[in-house]
Design a protein around this nucleic acid. Structure first.
Lengths: 119, 119
DNA sequence: CTACAATATCGTTATTCGACGATAAACGAT
DNA sequence: ATCGTTTATCGTCGAATAACGATATTGTAG
């Protein structure tokens, strides 16, 4: 039995997991801030070992968040936004739901049924 | 030395980590789909042990994504959207950047400098 | 072919995560 | 005060993650 969760939930979780490390967030921010190719400069900026950075890049690549194109001796990384769409709209739904309900202060709910157990 | 990453990157990563599990994504979707209080029904729907679900709920609570209000014997969970704002706008930036550049197919970049090492 | 430069992969180690059952805590009802 | 119901916490265990240095790979230049 391997199907406790549906595919979309797993996909969203996968994307979130790829973003779930400050080093990878920083890598993406570096990619956001530069218009040009980003290669080994990243390693220097992160303050981590080259192999560690390479691993983070691999994770982002597997998640489809970045794409690496081989240039000369280096690799050019660019962002690929389509991969974060599912997660982005998921977050949007959270905001929508919250604004139709109450934002933060009111009580939560009137408890429609007195709890139905599946006996 | 504890400050390899800045606070915002860590905060975004924290939020992403809270979403980085299909069970927690599913919990949030359940909260999205119901208007009423959600308590132990979640446990049944997830197909996980009660203690495991409680732990996932705790993680979401610590991340500030949900809020639990104590009702009678149960706890009423509601979404608190403000906590995902930073991550949401981070994802938005990725999309913006990508549309100003090229979407998916073109070559990446012209390599502005022949690689500057910080000698 | 050899050398070099940039990246990727491997092997290891310490830490964290996820799941579970068992147990505790809270609290209204009897 | 005791019971029953709901949720939280604890202790444990196996699996996954993150980090590193060392080594392999790739491809251009000489």
């Amino acid at each position: 039995m391997n199907k406790l969760f549906n595919e979309q939930d797993e996909s969203i979780a996968e994307t979130a997991k790829a973003l779930a490390h400050p080093a990878r967030v920083k890598i993406i921010r570096l990619l956001l801030s530069k218009t040009s190719c980003v290669g080994g400069e990243i390693t220097a900026e992160l303050g981590l070992a080259q192999s560690t950075v390479s691993e983070h890049l691999r994770i982002l690549k597997v998640a489809g968040i970045i794409v690496g194109e081989i240039e000369h001796p280096r690799v050019c990384y660019t962002l690929k936004p389509s991969s974060v769409n599912a997660l982005a709209s998921f977050l949007e739904q959270i905001n929508i739901k919250a604004s139709t309900a109450q934002t933060d202060d009111g009580l939560c709910c009137p408890l429609e049924s007195p709890f139905e157990q599946k006996d």
